[in-house]
Amino acid sequence: MVDHATPNLPSRHFEATINFYAALGFTVVFRDAGWLILSRGDLILEFFPDANLNPAASSFGSCLRLDDLDAFYSECRKAGIPETTVGWPRIEPPRHEASGLRIGALLDPDASLLRLIQNRDT
């Protein structure tokens, strides 16, 4: 296994988190009362329970670096995630940033921000 990192994000309800991410192709790798791990290919997201989380005040987030950002964005839209700039869950379309990267955004039902970044060819 190569070195890697995985985000640790809050979940108010594991079932709601599982259902949201399942619509995007994620499956449960591990679950107990205190931890949840989901994967989609090489993407791994880990969640801890936080029933008292206030999504409006959440500052949790991570980056998903994707080989095909447009395909993932399309899957989010097909899953019914609204394209908007307010509320959550929501998806914001990819755009070219000053950094030269194409970046979109996904906010999950707990308002964790997942920046969607197109991988560059090396």
Score class of each variant (00 low, 15 high):
residue 1 M to R: 12
residue 5 A to T: 11
residue 6 T to W: 03
residue 9 L to P: 02
residue 16 A to T: 13
residue 18 I to Y: 04
residue 19 N to C: 13
residue 22 A to S: 06
residue 23 A to D: 07
residue 23 A to Y: 03
residue 24 L to N: 03
residue 24 L to Y: 06
residue 25 G to F: 00
residue 25 G to N: 01
residue 26 F to K: 02
residue 26 F to M: 05
residue 27 T to C: 08
residue 29 V to N: 03
residue 31 R to C: 05
residue 31 R to A: 08
residue 32 D to P: 07
residue 33 A to F: 03
residue 35 W to P: 15
residue 36 L to H: 01
residue 36 L to E: 04
residue 37 I to A: 02
residue 37 I to S: 05
residue 38 L to Y: 00
residue 39 S to Y: 02
residue 40 R to F: 11
residue 41 G to L: 12
residue 43 L to C: 01
residue 44 I to Q: 06
residue 44 I to L: 08
residue 44 I to N: 10
residue 50 D to H: 13
residue 53 L to F: 12
residue 54 N to H: 06
residue 58 S to G: 11
residue 59 S to P: 01
residue 59 S to V: 10
residue 60 F to M: 03
residue 61 G to A: 08
residue 62 S to M: 04
residue 62 S to R: 01
residue 63 C to A: 15
residue 63 C to I: 12
residue 64 L to F: 10
residue 64 L to A: 04
residue 65 R to T: 01
residue 65 R to V: 05
residue 66 L to I: 04
residue 67 D to C: 13
residue 68 D to A: 00
residue 68 D to Q: 07
residue 70 D to S: 05
residue 72 F to L: 10
residue 78 K to E: 00
residue 78 K to G: 07
residue 79 A to D: 09
residue 79 A to W: 02
residue 80 G to S: 13
residue 82 P to N: 00
residue 83 E to L: 08
residue 84 T to A: 11
residue 84 T to W: 05
residue 87 G to W: 06
residue 90 R to K: 06
residue 90 R to N: 08
residue 91 I to A: 14
residue 91 I to R: 10
residue 92 E to R: 10
residue 92 E to V: 11
residue 93 P to F: 08
residue 97 E to S: 09
residue 97 E to N: 05
residue 97 E to T: 07
residue 99 S to R: 01
residue 99 S to T: 02
residue 100 G to W: 15
residue 101 L to S: 11
residue 103 I to F: 09
residue 105 A to C: 06
residue 106 L to R: 06
residue 107 L to S: 00
residue 108 D to T: 02
residue 108 D to V: 08
residue 109 P to M: 00
residue 110 D to L: 09
residue 111 A to C: 08
residue 111 A to L: 06
residue 112 S to W: 01
residue 114 L to P: 12
residue 114 L to R: 12
residue 115 R to W: 09
residue 116 L to K: 03
residue 117 I to E: 14
residue 118 Q to C: 11
residue 118 Q to S: 11
residue 118 Q to M: 12
residue 118 Q to E: 12
residue 118 Q to G: 06
residue 122 T to C: 15
